[in-house]
Simulated assay, not measured.
Amino acid sequence: MKHKPVIVLMPGLGDGLEKMAGIQKTLSEKNRVCSYDRLGEGASDQPDGPQTFAGSGKILTGVIDRVAGHRPVVLAGHSLGGMIAARYAPGHRDRVKGVVLMDATSPTSVADVTNAIPESATGPAAELRAQTLQVDRGDNPEKLLITDGKVRSAGDIPVAVIQHGKKYLAAFPEYGPRLEEDWAKGQREWLAISHHSKLITATNSEHYIYVDQPDLAVKTIQRVTSEAAR
Rank of each mutant, 00 (worst) to 15 (best):
D65E: 13
G40V: 08
R66A: 11
G98E: 07
Y210N: 01
A86I: 15
T26K: 14
E29Q: 12
Q131G: 11
G81A: 10
I64G: 06
A116H: 11
S120N: 00
Y88R: 14
P72T: 11
Q24W: 09
V211I: 15
D148K: 00
D212Q: 07
P5W: 00
D37C: 09
P118H: 02
D65F: 00
A154M: 03
D212S: 05
K143A: 07
L27G: 05
R188V: 12
I64P: 03
P107H: 04
P107L: 01
A85D: 06
H70P: 12
M20H: 10
L101K: 04
P5T: 01
T26N: 09
H164F: 09
N31W: 13
L128Y: 05
A111V: 08
D136Y: 14
R38I: 11
D112T: 09
Q213W: 09
I146L: 03
K167I: 02
P177A: 02
A54E: 13
I221Q: 00
D45R: 15
R137T: 05
L216D: 14
V63F: 05
G98F: 10
Q213P: 07
L39Q: 11
A104G: 12
M1P: 09
A130S: 08
Q46M: 14
E18F: 07
P50C: 00
P47M: 04
G91F: 10
T108K: 05
L13G: 01
K185V: 15
K2D: 03
V224H: 06
Q163W: 09
V100K: 01
S109Y: 10
S106F: 08
V96Q: 03
R137L: 05
Q51N: 15
A192E: 13
T52A: 01
S35K: 14
G176K: 08
A154K: 10
R38D: 13
M83R: 13
K19I: 04
L39H: 12
A89C: 12
G82T: 08
S44Q: 10
A21W: 02
R178D: 00
D182P: 01
N115F: 15
A125K: 06
G62S: 07
T225W: 06
A104I: 14
L169I: 02
I193D: 01
I146C: 03
A184Q: 04
A202T: 09
R32N: 05
S79Y: 11
A126Y: 02
M20N: 10
L133G: 13
P214A: 08
V99E: 02
I193N: 06
L13M: 06
A104L: 13
S56A: 08
T114R: 14
K167E: 07
P5A: 01
L216F: 13
L9R: 04
T220A: 04
I209Y: 11
V8N: 00
A184E: 03
V74R: 02
A85Q: 08
K143C: 05
P72C: 04
D148T: 02
H78A: 06
A229W: 12
T105M: 10
P72M: 05
K219F: 04
K4W: 01
A202C: 05
K58P: 04
T52D: 00
G55T: 09
T201R: 10
I221P: 00
P173I: 09
A76H: 03
P177Q: 00
A192S: 15
